[in-house]
Amino acid sequence: MSKVRVGIIGCGGIANGKHMPSLATVNDAEMVAFCDLEIGRAEEAKAKFGTADAAVYEDYTSMLSDSTIDVIHVCTPNDSHAEITIAALEAGKHVLCEKPMAKTAADARRMLEVAKRTGKKLSIGYQNRYRADSRYLKQACSDGELGEIYYAKAHAIRRRAVPTWGVFLDEEKQGGGPLIDIGTHALDLALWMMDNYKPKTVLGRTYHKLSQTENAANAWGPWDPAKFTVEDSAFAMITMENGASIVLESSWALNSLEVDEAKVSLHGTKAGADMKDGLRFNGEHNSRLYVNKVEMNSGGVAFYDGASSDNASDLEAHTWISAVKNDTDLVVTPEQALVVSEILEAIYESSRTGKAVEFNN
């Protein structure tokens, strides 16, 4: 395989903001096909990112019939992730699907089953794992520097940053609001750092408290309360089989000055760590408490912060294409992403019923 031939399904915000610009930095990949229900968006994507002879489609099934395409990136609303991913896998393509894995856990399980049966690679777009601070912290966890991590907090809090475009506010298309949109990233980081994918009990609550505010202050302008059908906040306590606990907090709009997104705080028997103010480690040494802050910048010279290849989305694209081309292990496995989806669904269920959800692993 000289170059991995990639097809993009869904040429909207996430494709233009992450997938296509990052793939363009990968020498071993070329974008040869673009599909969107709005053909004009596919044409624009081809003009900006495609090869000279790249094909354009309105119907993704027609794209999948092209046997020369090796990889499909699924960049569509959540409710179509499973349908398109399964069709692509069945057509012999490797798939990188945007997060979350699917709208429902049942759909995510079907995706995993088909990936196993077809032998094709399936990964999910949790690009925050590729950040420099995430990779450093993961190595520290793997090396046992924190000891047993028995308590974690997954942070996904915005003060006022409700996405008002696309279908973000449409529960039917997305399956939920900030929990399934940004809470999913924070939860993925927490589970990955802890290397713990066996939940036992989930107790959660979603809120619709600020969604009906008229002319609300918001990063992208006021939202339409009539179209705001998803939660504006969601919070949960997750206990794991080994006794560990995770608190997950997610919101697009919260009266809070403590704003953190795609960050974790970890508490272990040897030390703790958090991403609150850069990457910090804390603990006790020689009967004294300490706080160590890791310098993540590569600069040190006036007016220069250092050359870096630490763009998380670019690194995700390079690592993914390398895994396909060289048949190496994935950083984000579908098994891991499935657990994230199962926990998210349990939080929504717990909120609806007012009861804790028990897992039978």
Rank of each mutant, 00 (worst) to 15 (best):
G7R: 04
I8P: 08
I8L: 10
C11T: 14
A15L: 05
V26C: 15
N27Y: 01
V32T: 09
D36G: 03
I39F: 02
R41H: 14
E43Y: 06
E43T: 07
E43L: 12
E43R: 13
A45H: 08
F49D: 02
A52H: 05
A54N: 07
A55Y: 06
S65L: 08
S65M: 05
D66M: 03
T68A: 12
P77E: 03
P77V: 02
A82N: 06
T85C: 11
V95K: 01
A105H: 02
R109I: 03
M111E: 10
V114Y: 04
V114R: 02
G119H: 06
K121H: 02
K121C: 00
S123R: 04
Q127G: 00
R129M: 01
S134E: 02
A140I: 01
G144Y: 01
G147S: 07
A152V: 09
K153N: 10
K153E: 14
R160W: 13
R160C: 11
V162E: 01
T164G: 00
W165M: 13
F168H: 15
L169K: 14
G175F: 05
P178I: 08
D188S: 14
L189P: 09
A190Q: 01
L191D: 02
L191A: 04
W192I: 01
M193I: 04
K200T: 02
T201L: 14
V202G: 01
G204K: 03
Y207H: 14
A216Q: 09
A217K: 15
D224E: 07
I238L: 12
N242T: 10
S245R: 12
I246M: 11
L248P: 02
W252T: 09
E261N: 15
H267T: 09
H267F: 15
K270S: 15
G272F: 13
A273H: 11
D277H: 13
D277F: 13
L279S: 05
R280I: 12
N286W: 10
V294W: 07
S298V: 15
S298M: 14
S298A: 10
G299Q: 13
N311R: 12
E316F: 14
A317P: 10
S322I: 00
A323V: 13
A323P: 03
V324Y: 04
L330D: 08
T333R: 07
V340I: 15
Y348H: 02
Y348F: 14
E349S: 13
E358N: 08
N361H: 15
